[in-house]
Design a protein around this nucleic acid. Structure first.
Length: 429
RNA sequence: GGAGGGAUGGCCGAGCGGUUUAAGGCGGCAGUCUUGAAAACUGCUGGGGUCUAACGGCCCCCGUAGGUUCGAAUCCUACUCCCUCCGCCA
């Protein structure tokens, strides 16, 4: 959510951001509603002041126990005034939700160095890492490898739940577990993140706070009978951890990492990436979340990306880093880097991480602030929030299977995972 | 699921229709004293909105939302969350 005061002063910049991110919000209409609202507030406050003064006089008159008639007249006057205020307040209550709703639909403004672009084709490759493996045979896609190795059973997953709910078995299940344990250990032990294990169901306020609602409501699983949603990413519970708090400057920066399963309906993505586990309704992910001082957030974004990259480097997966253009970045983001791993079987780059600086956009929604040092005036300011996958599992698993496959169909386990696998070096039939 | 108890500022805690402009304490910050620190003393110390060039003024916030009243932290209703006990249960 943007600062309404900022919108008043910079309507053109806001309109540009709305256009660039392909949103539709009538900013002029918002400003009109806002002006009306402020006029109404002014009226109410004037009336309320009169009411407060009148009530005080009633109190004094009653105490002096004189002028019964005067008191009765005044009380009657105040009753009329009170009704008038209630009437005005009703009008205010009608306009406020519309303003709030419009505010929630305005996207964040892209940072100055974000490339302009309409869609994914406008994204810039910032760097690549790793050497493309030369295969002496035609690399097979992960769904074939997974099935023949008996570690991935999509048919039975579909039987239990439906298409897009993968079932990992045996050494495959262990590999999945090894991956997120490895990632959590790396981030907690080497990168200084605190591990949290949050709820997988969250309430509406949390979903709205991080920006999934109202825009993405069709992409989420909603619990029937309760106002709860399955988390589409750990970003939601972890970022909401400090909702409505004022942090001490000494606490910043705060780094959290969390494993959760993630649930996404992927409405509107039907027919895309239907083979294998490239796009599924349930997947595992290790998330990185930061709360930082505003001055440091872009520096913190670069560090966050490096932390995610290290996961891929240690796993020996070829990847590239993209800086997303205005048209392809998410609603709430100021600047986003995507990490894409190379999958030689599926023959495409797969997004395994998306790292964003939201500046104060989320902080404003979830009301997370911090108090400055008293030497800086002790002012209360919004923190900046960041997050990124560190990293998403199914596609990382795909990259491992497809990159590390051998001609006989077996797959070599990356060395860093072997301690988590009971020393298993190769998955074979 | 059933029965009770509770929710007040960063924390503890008073208040139970009108000097509440939310007592008091703790914590925090600044100052005095001191070579420095501690102690003691003094002062300051929540958030939001709105008007103003600014100084500052005014309005709102005592879990949330309604209601009663000239006036609500205080009375009424509903809801949420926490605690205790019972039942059920991994």
């Amino acid at each position: 959510m943007l600062d309404l005061n900022f919108i008043r002063k910079n309507p053109e910049a806001v309109k540009r951001a709305v256009r660039e991110k392909h949103e539709r919000v009538d900013i002029d209409h918002l400003l009109k509603l806002d002006a009306d609202r402020r006029e109404l507030i002014h009226q109410i406050e004037t009336l309320r002041k009169q009411l407060n003064e009148g009530s005080k006089r009633v109190s004094q008159l009653k105490k002096s126990a004189s002028g019964g008639q005067e008191t009765a007249t005044l009380v009657e006057e105040m009753r009329v005034l009170s009704d008038k205020i209630k009437d005005h307040e009703k009008r205010l209550d009608q306009s406020t939700p519309e303003i709030d709703d419009l505010l929630l639909r305005i996207p964040n403004i892209p940072a100055a160095d974000v490339p302009k672009g309409e869609d994914a084709s406008g994204n810039q490759v910032v760097r690549t890492w790793g050497k493309r493996r030369e295969f002496s045979f035609k690399p097979r896609p992960h769904w074939e490898l997974g099935a023949s190795l008996g570690i991935l059973d999509l048919e039975r997953g579909a039987k239990i739940s439906g298409s897009g709910f993968p079932l990992y078995k045996g050494i495959g299940a262990r590999l999945e577990r090894a991956l997120f344990n490895f990632m959590l250990d790396l981030h907690t032990q080497k990168h200084g993140y605190q591990e949290v294990f949050p709820p997988f169901l969250v309430n509406r306020a949390s979903m709205t706070g991080t920006g999934q609602l109202p825009k993405m409501k069709d992409d989420m699983y909603k619990i029937d009978g309760d106002d709860l949603f399955l988390v589409p990413t750990a970003e939601v519970p972890v970022t909401n951890l400090h909702r409505d708090e004022i942090l001490n400057y000494k606490e910043l920066p705060i780094y959290y990492t969390a494993y959760t399963a993630c649930f996404r309906r992927e409405a509107g993505a039907y027919g895309k990436d239907t083979r294998g586990i490239i796009r599924v309704h349930q997947f595992d992910k290790v998330e990185l979340v930061k709360f930082v001082r505003p001055e440091t957030s872009y520096e913190e974004l670069e560090k966050l990306v490096k932390d995610a990259e290290e996961v891929l480097q240690l796993l020996g997966i070829e990847y590239r880093v993209l800086k997303l253009c205005t048209g392809d970045m998410s609603f709430a983001s100021s600047k986003t880097y995507d990490l894409e791993a190379w999958a030689p079987g599926a023959e495409k780059w797969l997004e395994v991480s998306s790292c964003s600086n939201f500046e104060d956009f989320q902080a404003r929604r979830i009301n997370v602030r911090f108090r400055e040092e008293s030497t800086s005036g002790g002012k209360v300011r919004y923190v900046h929030t960041l997050n990124g996958s560190g990293v998403a599992l199914p596609r990382t698993l795909i990259a491992i299977l497809e990159n590390n496959q051998q001609e006989n169909g077996s797959v070599v386990i990356p060395e860093v995972l072997r301690p988590y696998m009971g020393g298993v070096e190769v998955i074979s039939q």
